[in-house]
Amino acid sequence: MGLQHMKTSEFDAAVSAAPLAMIDFWASWCGPCKMLSPTIEALAGQYDGKVLVGKVNVDEEPDLARQFGVMSIPTVVFLKNGREFDRKVGLMPADAFTAVLDENL
């Protein structure tokens, strides 16, 4: 499945169907987001088939950013069957994300 670039229209259905999802809210004008990007891509590969790893461009999908109250990017939101249970704001090393994923797999 790999990394999903998610649109508002398909978002709810996709995350509701996923036991565990990790969504990165980002934008092209944000340097820290660009720095986080390779980490998110690597995690999409590492957790392929186990976790839905997606990216939401807040510029193209402002409604989703508003719905999740994204106040600073990058923001990574963790969901179980569409329900948020954790989030990480700002640039972080991969193990900050794997710790949440491994605990909730």
Partner: peptide, 15 residues
């Protein structure tokens, strides 16, 4: 921080 405090206007301004 991250809930209305930001160090980057270009990153978060659009929000």
């Amino acid at each position: 921080l991250g809930r209305g405090v930001s160090y980057c206007a270009t990153c978060d301004g659009m929000l």
